[in-house]
């Protein structure tokens, strides 16, 4: 278990890796990757049972990035943990790379589920949780779901099943940045009260500031203590967090960075 200061430094480096990767790839999704830095740092370096030297460790907790387009956040975290080296980050989205545009479990050890087609990762996470329950294992499953991704019907099918099978080893983390490709969530497809929806489906729901390391540590501890039902952590985030000109800008969902944007972003992170 690492201190708040260490986790904060890790989050900063994760953000840095994301900008490096996307700056070199000249394609990919900056906004929804950057906003996960603190969540990834707290999950992988504090909350989860995980050994970066042995990503197939049978006792590990599982992480599924259901919003697969935030793959750079996952690769950056793997780099921070030593699972991949910095050089490899520059292969993102290139022919032959293990770092596919969306995570591919066949190519990169550590990726639990191949995701990218929205909604499916959460359903898969439920299946992993069910498999663990069946074997009476204690491992937990964490799934990061985008708020726009909640438009997908399969999310709610999976939510219903998770409650039905009492998957208290499953924790959904909703990356609630309020934006999706075509605009603000509620302008595209009104989400209503996300917490109330999960609660109605049988989840124990928590709300947290997705950039507050202490609050994240605390909320995951609370979620872990819940028995008999799955949990949902609604994490309020700022899309593009950490880069001033990207924050809360819908345009930075999947826009490639130009050289000048990359240099500016890098300067901000290093400043």
């Amino acid at each position: 278990m690492e201190t708040r200061e260490t986790l904060s430094k890790r989050a900063k480096r994760i953000r840095h890796h994301i900008i490096e990767m996307l700056g070199h790839a000249k394609s990919g999704h900056p906004g929804g990757s950057l906003d996960l830095a603190e969540i990834m740092s707290v999950l992988y370096f504090h909350e989860m049972k995980y050994d970066f030297n042995d990503p197939a460790w049978p006792e590990r907790d599982y992480f599924v990035l259901s919003k697969g387009h935030a793959a750079p956040a996952l690769y950056a975290t793997f780099c921070e943990g030593g699972l991949i080296d910095e050089e490899e980050l520059f292969t993102l989205r290139r022919l032959g790379s293990r770092l596919q545009g969306h995570p591919d479990r066949k190519k990169l050890p550590g990726v639990e589920a191949s995701t990218g087609s929205l909604g499916q990762g959460f359903s898969i996470a439920g299946g992993i949780a069910l498999s663990l329950k069946l074997r009476q294992k204690e491992n937990r499953v964490y799934a990061v779901v985008g708020d726009g991704e909640l438009d997908e019907g399969i999310i709610w099918e999976a939510a219903m099943a998770a409650a039905n099978y009492k998957l208290d080893n499953l924790c959904a983390i909703v990356d609630h940045n309020g934006l999706q490709i075509d605009g603000a969530n509620d302008d595209v497809m009104c989400l209503g009260d996300i917490g109330a929806k999960f609660e109605a489906f049988g989840f124990e729901v928590f709300h947290v500031d997705g950039h507050d390391i202490d609050a994240l540590i605390e909320v995951f501890a609370k979620a872990k203590a819940v028995t008999g039902r799955p949990t949902a952590v609604i994490a309020k985030t700022v899309k593009g967090k950490g880069i001033s000109f990207m924050e809360n800008q819908v345009g930075w969902h999947g826009t490639p960075m130009k050289e000048e944007d990359y240099l500016k972003a890098k300067a901000e992170l290093e400043g």
């Binding site: 479990r105 589920a113 499916q120 359903s123 439920g126 949780a129 069910l130 399969i154």
Partner: peptide, 8 residues
């Protein structure tokens, strides 16, 4: 999707 997770 659940089938995929169980297989994993």
């Amino acid at each position: 999707g659940t089938a995929a997770g169980l297989a994993i």
